[in-house]
Design a protein around this nucleic acid. Structure first.
Length: 756
RNA sequence: GCCCGAGUGGCGGAAUUGGUAUACGCGUUCGACUUAAAAUCGAAUGGAGCGAUCCAUAUGGGUUCAAGUCCCAUCUCGGGCACCA
């Protein structure tokens, strides 16, 4: 017969799937649903990389597996398109981000189709499509109405290269997550989402999720709840400093107070003698980069000139300012207990402050109980062009007003000059016509001309609700259709390799908010999460253009291996949660395996020799996919094929093989099933075929393997018989000449251990 | 510094509740087919030894009839957090 020609077979089936809209999903009441999704990609100019392929293939294996089992499966696809790369490209080339985005999406779609993914292409979404971001703006307005979107002036992380502020979650080791440049602090008025409102629930409900412990722990640490108390230290009868502490019981040892350089009431504490020195210290601290603060943990600080009374000891204690106290946490002021706290002791020793051993007192004696979180509110303003416009306008007094919902979307205007500047306003500030808008002013009761907000939304806002959009992606009346939501959502299995705290925390926050508003009938958006590892270059290093070690998945297909080999290889490469290094020779091994599957069609035996291993393989592959052990599922199929080569494959053997293979190599499997005249219904096994008539019994002496006996399965009930058979065996007898002390028989393990 | 996770052949990795360590794949070697090569098919492959055997799951202890798996220390690597009071 003909040779295995993956390119030909794959083209044929991709055409069939396209022509028949094979993966279109519709609600079917009475049929159990399964909603699967990957973290949708940012469509870069480079096209799909092997990491995308791993991500999408995991989803695809599960999609096809559940579909073959008769579930009503939804597997949509979309593009997360707002963001810096397209805008930076526009600044460099003058080509509009809208245009580049379209080109890149087209390329991604074409490439994804060549991989044979079972995607419902009628549900494609794109976050920079006005029909989509119209509803992102609607989401913003719902949060705004409830006071969960608000403006605040404060010190924020600012990236001087990208010329925008960043959320806490987007600062990695003091550097910008996009360009890697050190971030600075800048005082600006910015928009926030009040995620802290849900801190307790985000923390407490996380244990109910079937997510990897690693992610759960990271989120818990990020939220960082501390239970303690706030305590007032009075300077005078009317002036006080409130501190937060987790150890109010150590107050007897509090020998001084420390406030952060940014502390709001700092000025009041200064005296003529100290003012100059303290202000110099403050401006130096603000200039320090986060990197410098991290590297240099020396405890610097200066005395403010003021004193407060310790309410427990009634002692007058000095107030210092030091940058080891953080402005953004607690009250920005602490009581220092150098006898108990390492950092306070270091500071006290460096500045000759009193250290007194403390006796513990009752926790509630001097303060009021208070819970504090490390998590801050989510900063969402971005001073960049290529993002979702914030639907807000300002009146002549600078007060914000929401754009009415019936005027959405606030379209992102086309501009010529995308370059941001250090003024703190995006390129949208130059779109002078667009800036003007007439909005009703509830203060004056009139429609007035106002000025639009020129910041755009953090891209994470766009991805905080897209999983719900998938349920009714073309809805023009609402962000999502409640009926479709009730049927499909929440997501059953979500697959990704990134965004452990940012995206996966934000989407949980929005879910809880919209549940409270009555728009969602559940409080957690994602039941199960598969967090897979990266694929590295053959040398084990991260793939990168500059190192020239990038493997292009399309090259693998075009080299003649085909998509099925690529997909199956990436599932076989190792445990799903671990990083793996690309091995071009192993790709060849998987190709050989698929080739062997195909060639089995040439000689179909009439005799069924393989009932046991067939049933065993069906069981193994089924349970492995349920456990996401894709690598061992593929290994089981390889073992099965090796066996079929030895014993000869009958029709039923091959049908089972093709069905089990289909999630991994759908084109080849479809071809095989067609030639075998079979459907793709997932096969079942019968445990009665898994027990054979004879069993191999392991005989150990002192725990070491010494012999194997083949017996009738029924003999496993007869311990005495087994023992005498073992003792009679010459390989055993030579160890047991002096008799045995005891014997342990384990029928479950088919094992007999003799102790001499 | 703190919190997780992981250390198994030449390599990627398998191993129900503790129960035959090294499945599967790569690589290597040999053989068949071929004028030859590729492809394909078959066989061998943890180390030492002629052998019976002995030694091997990061290191050192422990529990057990039995430990890759459980317990205690130590080392190495990866990830996260990092002055959060």
């Amino acid at each position: 017969m003909d040779r295995y020609d993956p390119i030909k077979i794959e083209q044929k089936w991709q055409q069939i799937w396209a022509d028949t809209s094979a993966f279109k999903a519709t609600e079917q009441n009475g049929t159990p649903k399964m909603f699967l999704a990957e973290m949708f990609p940012y469509p870069s100019g480079a096209g799909l990389h092997v990491g995308h392929v791993r991500n999408f293939t995991i989803v695809d294996v599960l999609t096809r597996f559940y579909a073959q089992q008769g579930l009503n499966v939804l597997r949509p696809f979309g593009y997360d398109t707002f963001g810096l790369p397209a805008e930076n490209y526009a600044i460099k080339t003058g080509i509009a981000p809208q245009e580049v985005t379209k080109t890149n999406i087209d390329n991604f779609r074409t490439q994804a189709k060549r991989l044979g993914f079972a995607i419902d292409w009628s549900r494609e979404i794109n976050t920079s499509d006005p029909e989509y971001y119209r509803w992102t703006q609607w989401c913003f307005l719902q949060l705004y109405k409830k006071g969960l979107a608000y403006q605040k002036e404060s010190y924020q992380w600012w990236c001087p290269v990208d010329q925008t502020v960043l959320a806490n979650e987007q600062v990695e080791n003091g550097k910008c997550w996009r360009c890697g440049h050190e971030v600075e602090k800048k005082k600006m008025k910015q928009w926030f989402f009040k995620i802290t409102e849900y801190a307790d629930e985000l923390l407490e409900s996380i244990d109910s999720l079937e997510w990897p412990d690693k992610i759960k722990t990271m989120q818990k640490n990020w939220i960082g709840r501390s239970i303690g108390a706030e305590i007032d230290f009075h300077l005078t009868d009317s002036q006080k400093i409130t501190v937060f502490t987790t150890r109010p019981d150590t107050i007897m040892g509090a020998t001084f107070l420390v406030v952060a350089p940014e502390y709001a009431g700092l000025d009041y504490l200064l005296t003529d003698d100290t003012r100059e020195e303290v202000l110099a210290y403050k401006s130096a601290a603000l200039k320090k980069s986060e990197i410098e603060r991290q590297e240099n943990k020396e405890k610097t600080g200066v005395f403010t000139g003021s004193y407060a009374i310790n309410p427990a000891t009634k002692e007058k204690i000095p107030i210092w300012v030091a940058d080891y106290v953080l402005a953004g946490y607690g009250t920005g002021a602490i009581m220092a207990v150098p006898a108990m706290d390492d950092r306070d002791r270091e500071f006290a020793e460096a500045h000759n402050l009193a250290i007194v051993e403390t006796e513990l007192v009752d926790r509630d004696l001097y303060g009021t109980p208070k819970t504090m979180y490390k998590m801050r509110d989510w900063l969402i303003s971005r001073q960049r062009y290529w993002g979702c416009p914030i639907p807000i306008a300002y009146d002549s007094e600078g007060d914000p007003h929401p754009i009415p919902e019936d005027q959405l979307p606030v379209m992102l205007p086309e501009v010529k000059d995308y370059q941001p500047d250090s003024s703190g306003r995006s390129a949208l500030a130059k779109a002078t016509d667009w800036l003007k808008v007439k909005v009703y002013n509830e203060k004056t009761g009139k429609i007035e001309e106002m000025t639009r907000e020129t910041d755009t939304l953090d891209g994470y806002a766009c991805s905080s609700w897209y999983l719900w959009r998938y349920a009714s992606p073309h809805d023009t009346k609402a962000a999502w259709d409640p009926e479709a939501i009730r049927y499909w959502e929440p997501v059953d299995i979500y697959v990704g390799a990134d965004h452990a705290v940012a995206h996966l925390l934000y989407i949980r926050f929005w879910c809880k908010f919209f549940a409270d508003e009555g728009y969602l009938p559940f409080r957690e958006p994602i039941k199960k999460l598969i967090y897979h590892g990266y694929i590295n270059a053959p040398d084990g290093k991260k793939m990168s253009k500059s190192k020239g070690n990038v493997i292009d998945p399309l090259d693998v297909i075009n080299d003649g291996y085909g998509a099925d080999t690529l997909r199956t290889y990436e599932m076989f490469i190792g445990p799903v949660e671990l990083d793996a290094a690309w091995d071009p020779r192993s790709v060849g091994g998987v190709y050989r395996f698929l080739n062997r599957c195909y060639n089995l069609l040439d000689s179909i035996s009439d005799i069924d020799n393989n009932i046991t291993i067939r049933n065993k393989t069906i069981k193994k592959v089924t349970t492995d996919i349920h456990k996401y052990n894709f690598n061992t599922a593929v290994a089981a199929l390889m073992e099965y094929v090796n066996e079929l080569y030895k014993t000869g494959a009958c029709h039923e053997d091959l049908v089972a093989l093709a069905k089990l293979l289909k999630p991994f190599a759908p084109h080849l499997a479809s071809e095989m099933l067609e030639r075998l005249d079979a459907n793709d219904e997932w096969p079942t096994w019968d445990d009665k075929y898994l027990v054979s008539d004879t069993v191999e019994l392991v005989i150990q002496v002192n725990g070491k393997l010494r012999a194997k006996l083949t017996l009738d399965a029924s003999d496993l009930d007869d311990e005495e018989k087994i023992k005498s058979l073992a003792l009679a065996d010459p390989r055993i007898a030579k160890y047991t000449a002096d008799g045995i002390k005891k014997s342990i028989f384990v029928p479950r393990a088919k094992l007999l251990n003799l102790v001499v």
